[in-house]
Design a protein around this nucleic acid. Structure first.
Ligand SMILES: [Zn+2]
Ligand SMILES: [Zn+2]
Ligand SMILES: [Zn+2]
Ligand SMILES: [Zn+2]
Lengths: 132, 132
DNA sequence: AACATTATGTAATAATATAACATTTAGAAG
DNA sequence: CTTCTAAATGTTATATTATTACATAATGTT
């Protein structure tokens, strides 16, 4: 089970916005959208984002510098993330696949390194974009 | 086999620098290092980086906004990349593991999406940093 | 109440990346 | 060789993403 976190005021505003958007959002787009709620500065946004990432409520899509609400309810997801990204419409969704996550969480090579975290991004064309 | 690409002047300067560094380099650090060779503007660096990424001579480490020379000689590597990143010393190395790359290249879920590319980043502590 | 931790507010600035436009170089085609 | 085209370069300006520094306020713990 995921630990319950009581989000602070700014964290809640920003999480709700991202969550409702249903897709990835960029920091300055978030900023623009929450200015009417009193959040005026980039740092306020980035601080909330940092915290939300830390507790696994959102994830950063590294290749896009964007943030998406976690679509997964299981534990550990913030340390083991996988996404599919459409290179045409930029639709992003979180992949929830037990076999994949087990495979990657247990992965080890001959480097002597024990991995505590991974992030995987798949790229391609989504159904819609493929049929165009 | 990888197609031979004749690198242009700027591309060669920048590739050689990254390659010799042995690790990831950031764009503006590259810029600083090649200014004595006549490359004066960020765009000159980014254009060379774009091309080098495109042809697979370097890869971008998305979580670090840094670029590393490909340590892999096999084909298709630019569409199927995996890295291990030490969160303490920031050492990065490219993972070359046939089983892993086969597993991921063949991965498909129920989204109806056919993936043409992926990038995987593992995080942890390298041998050195673990023993400190 | 005292203390520590977390969150907030604000301004300035750093770091990363692209747009727009002019020019040059290198290949391919005739 | 000449013409055409694609790729690469040069330059200036600007857009986008993210952090530093410092002051204050709210929250939780002992
Ligand atoms: Zn998630
Ligand atoms: Zn699409
Ligand atoms: Zn490679
Ligand atoms: Zn290390």
């Amino acid at each position: 089970m995921q630990k319950e976190h009581n989000l602070s005021k700014n964290q809640k505003i920003i999480f709700d916005l991202i969550d409702k958007s249903g897709g990835p959002m960029k920091a300055y787009s978030i900023l623009f959208n929450v200015q009417k709620k009193g959040i005026k500065a980039p740092l306020q946004v980035y601080r909330a984002l940092d915290k939300l990432v830390e507790i696994g409520k959102i994830h950063k899509i590294e290749s896009r510098n964007a943030f998406i609400a976690c679509q997964n309810s299981s534990c550990q997801v913030s340390k083991a993330t996988a996404f599919s990204i459409c290179e045409s419409c930029e639709n992003v969704s979180e992949i929830s696949n037990l076999k994949l996550s087990k495979y990657l969480s247990n992965f080890s090579d001959n480097s002597g390194m024990k991995y505590s975290k991974y992030n995987l991004e798949f790229f391609g064309l989504c159904k819609k974009c493929k049929s165009k």
